[in-house]
Write a protein that binds this DNA or RNA. Structure first.
Lengths: 223, 223
DNA sequence: GATTGCAAGAATGTCAGACAATCCGCTTGA
DNA sequence: TCAAGCGGATTGTCTGACATTCTTGCAATC
């Protein structure tokens, strides 16, 4: 019996929430890559009708979180290493730029937020909860991206990170990855706090490089 | 792994075409920014049912080509200059990178294609058909992006360019813009043809800068 | 025994129609 | 003049239906 994803009994279910529910389900790895999503099943699980579900699926398809092939229906795409690499490269391009800009423009109050999120990650890193690690790390990045002064940069970045969220739990689970990730993130934070744009870029680039390597390692071992 | 022999020409997949039709209509400026799209009207115009139309609209919403506000329905977003600037900045980031990579990896045959598209733009530039100018220029970029070795870079770039397609006709119409654009593109081409990565980046950056300035000018005069 | 062919079942693509909820503009009343 | 309220227009969502297209299991064949 499939799990019931309809967590609310509220009278009116807004379609937007449905998309979010599905997205979250995908993020948390509830579906295996390559597995198909059966519309009728999802309908009963989410408690919505097929037309509404299909609208939600089209949104997710446009975000590249699912694939829909004609007459076969939606499925979770299995990310090849080539595509994952390409995503990491573009992500690097964006994130390095964002870190650099952030260093020279972040407000003291947002800086405190950034520090707070770093602490949250530190706590998660010392646990074994890789989902918490991924979530808190995502918070950290999103604060940086939100303060880079370019909303499009933020938006595109979020879209890309979403597509590789599947690995991120895995690679975080690698022996010692969370701890070294923490060290790299601390360096990013210090650079931003010091307002050192160049150092922030460098630290960010270094972090991405390591994260990519960890992702590759976890992917290889998963085969 | 054997090659995919599933060559069948799709007999009837009309749904996909619907999105494309709508997208094209938006690109060609058929709808004014800020104007609302009435579902029932679009249904009859496109000859499809409301559920199918709404699926298509969700796709376009995810691509940010339309906005859908709850209980008000879809409309063409009016691009603020802030957002347009942000898009140009990210586009610069991506396009400069792509031009650089392209310079060191494009094949002779693709280089010929690039030259051909440059000629096509040259012809369009000497006419007054700004739509043709925009289309041929888009071809030029897309060849560069397609040969940068990173499909994600290409994908993201396409998405961003789509969102500012509305200006591009306007800014191309500025006195002399098409001609100076041609000169800048020639320089990009020459750098790529010479395999000079650094020059390609520089030329690309210069081109984007000018394009952005032209866009701003056309936007200011539009008010 | 392995492969092919076929038929039943499952799932998708699409539509029509319906109805409540919501928004917008206009009239009406204070 | 301005506010309240009313009616039409539009969206959000559902049910149910049906043709088309996969998928799968079984039987027939080599």
């Amino acid at each position: 019996m499939p799990p019931d994803l309809n967590l609310r009994i509220s009278p009116r279910t807004v379609q937007r929430e449905t998309v979010d529910k599905l997205r979250l389900a995908i993020f948390s790895g509830l579906f295996q890559p390559g597995s198909r999503l059966i519309e009728s099943q999802l309908c009963t699980q989410l408690g919505i009708s097929r037309p509404s579900l299909r609208e939600a699926l089209r949104s997710l398809e446009a975000e590249r979180l699912i694939e829909i092939v004609p007459n076969r229906g939606p499925s979770i795409p299995s990310l090849s290493w080539e595509v994952a690499t390409a995503i990491y490269e573009v992500r690097e391009l964006l994130e390095v730029e964002a870190a650099g800009r952030c260093a020279s423009r972040i407000s003291p109050e947002q800086l405190r937020e950034l520090e707070k999120s770093l602490s949250a990650f530190e706590e998660a890193a010392s646990s074994n909860d890789s989902l918490a690690q991924v979530m808190t790390a995502a918070d950290f990045y999103s604060i940086i991206l939100a303060n880079c002064g370019n909303p499009i940069l933020e938006e595109v970045h979020r879209g890309l990170v979403a597509r590789i969220s599947f690995f991120r739990g895995r690679s975080m689970s690698l022996e010692g990855r969370a701890q070294s990730s923490l060290a790299e993130m601390k360096e990013i934070f210090e650079s931003i706090a010091a307002g050192d744009e160049k150092a922030a870029r460098k630290a960010s680039k270094n972090h991405l490089l390591k994260a990519k390597a960890a992702a590759k390692m976890s992917m290889d071992s998963a085969i």
